[in-house]
Design a protein around this nucleic acid. Sequence first.
DNA 1: TTTATTTTTTTACTTAGTAAATAAATACGT
DNA 2: ACGTATTTATTTACTAAGTAAAAAAATAAA
Lengths: 379, 379
Amino acid sequence: MNPYLRSARSATIAALLQHERLSRSELAEITGVSPASITEVSQNFLQQGLLVELLLPQTGKRGRPSVQLRLQSSHSYFVGISISEVATLMVVTDLQGHILARQTIPFCKTPAEVTAAVRKNYTTLLRDAAIPRSRVRGVGIAVAGIVNSDLGICRYSAALNWRDVPISELIGTALKLPAWVDNDANAAAVGEKFFGRARDYLNFTSIILGRSIGSAHYMHGMLYRGHDGGAGEIGHITIDPKGALCHCGRNGCLETIAGGFALRAAAKACGLSINGMRDLEVLAVQGNTEASRLLRTAGATLGAGIAYLVHINNPQCILFTDMEGFENGVFRTAIRQTIENNILPRFLGSTQILFMDAEPGFLPRSAASIAAFEYLTSL
Amino acid sequence: MNPYLRSARSATIAALLQHERLSRSELAEITGVSPASITEVSQNFLQQGLLVELLLPQTGKRGRPSVQLRLQSSHSYFVGISISEVATLMVVTDLQGHILARQTIPFCKTPAEVTAAVRKNYTTLLRDAAIPRSRVRGVGIAVAGIVNSDLGICRYSAALNWRDVPISELIGTALKLPAWVDNDANAAAVGEKFFGRARDYLNFTSIILGRSIGSAHYMHGMLYRGHDGGAGEIGHITIDPKGALCHCGRNGCLETIAGGFALRAAAKACGLSINGMRDLEVLAVQGNTEASRLLRTAGATLGAGIAYLVHINNPQCILFTDMEGFENGVFRTAIRQTIENNILPRFLGSTQILFMDAEPGFLPRSAASIAAFEYLTSL
DNA sequence: TTTATTTTTTTACTTAGTAAATAAATACGT
DNA sequence: ACGTATTTATTTACTAAGTAAAAAAATAAA
């Protein structure tokens, strides 16, 4: 089990986030906590309204019938905000990560403008979702940039042109809520762990395929930030020292070959007119060799990088989140094949590779999961 | 602090392993444990003889003088065994990782032979070190191969031609000691963390430069084994799919270019007659272009792999252990330069790169540290 | 000598859990 | 229809591991 979720209380919540509905005896079984403690803890949570008992049809089994418990989604709500150079997206979710309302705020230049816009939209958001302010437990913020999450500060964001912005305090004060901030890749990993496809994995890597390429790791069941908060910069491993200039200032970074921004530019340079990556994939299928080459090179390059990662970290799962609309096609196939061709046989069977199409609310929902994580583990 | 060292008892030991001698108030400060607990814990340990009070000259400060505490090295001894295709090395160490006696056992074919030889040499070892059997708390075993450390089994070792050998039970029974086993790279990392240069690091990677290339990570202050126990296989990342055949069955693995075995073979193929890597380095300094090229290519290739690792995991330190006698020269320089030239500026200042010459007892001492870790954290 | 200061210990209490006995609620066999 | 087996949940009595705050100990300086 996750070392951070080792208390009876947290283990109970974690188990119910994973399994939806469980009886007390199942909870004891799963968490390894004694039945006595489960009784005590669940009583407490029932009183708080965080848990509810379900009155299920009898199963026809012998013995005292078990009573199923589940989390009461309406007990707690969380605000999630993702801030990027395109727009600021804002959602409110329930305890289980369901989005109840959303707002899109056009790009704001300054932190103050973002804060003001967020404050204004918060009321609308709550009204749309029909949620009482009192049940909102916190706000999570995902920023495209380098974040010190302990201090709640965005250290640097090229996309937003921010430096040392105490965004967590700004927004926390504005909404009168506890606030946490992280970079978007970390937020995504937390979201997948709590609400998404990675709930069962103790060790996994989440890769975000967007304009750039981000990643984050769960290790020992916890988010691994690295020494400096810099873990997951796989987008900037050097593939070709003489390659194209990356916005990071170096040359030939992985994302200059496989990032959405770079692919778009490369397509344009080839005279291909595309709106999104789907178009490029369609062209490739139609036999356009340029499109095909771009996608295959991108996939093979990324796949090789992931193969390194598999050897180094041996994750149970690599979870790709596709924010660019590649969908299933040349790119994903190239990624998967390159990984499979470049890892030791012992890793072939034990490394899951999953691709997901990101829904529009993905990032802000992930941001909300940070607040959910912090709130729930503090109970 | 290390989550595994969160109890007052373990935190106390950890602090004293790091800082040698500390007063109770300093211990409270460092560990974050209340003075009351420190008193209680240290009393307990003093009774057991694990700690001793030092009567230091007065410092001339005001107030009640503090009493320094330190670990009593002679309280506990550990046996360390490293098993490879060359020889089985055996040491006994004290609580602080000092080697008190050592034995070299010629290569044994079968697990049974190893066990018998180990049993025979154990008595000699204890006599040489003048240690009472009763103070030996356990034995750690480092195996060149794939190990399931939970089960105490060597899953597979090409070098030893072993498959599913319950080596921990065999040796544990033979020596009548609690026994633990791990692969040699993991053992080395544990050794560096407990007894070596990595005591202060929560997140670091240890790279073993030997006949092959192994590595292991500490993350969140604990050894990270990966999903399958396969983390750290950096020696087998594919550098050149058309490269030389690796003993793992694939082509162009990193260690076919930068491993000691491969370098020796390559040198021979170039007509260079060398005894060890030191000779190759000397040839390079003397202007031999072949030697120079081999070492530079090897260093650059390894360095590039490490640069990937830095981006992916952002360790605080990369600790190279040189088992081949390169010492300072072309190889290390190439490694360091390639790393520095291929990582983001933000990592340049925050990633320590250390090279260490492995003394002869390095591996068995590392093995002993596994037993020390297990024993001390169980107190 | 008295007082201030610093370190350590003691006391009384809290928190978070457990094992084992007990109670509750059902199905089954006769 | 009724006792019995069975399974689930709760209660009781206890333990382990810590804490805060008061007290004690041991010194230097006034």
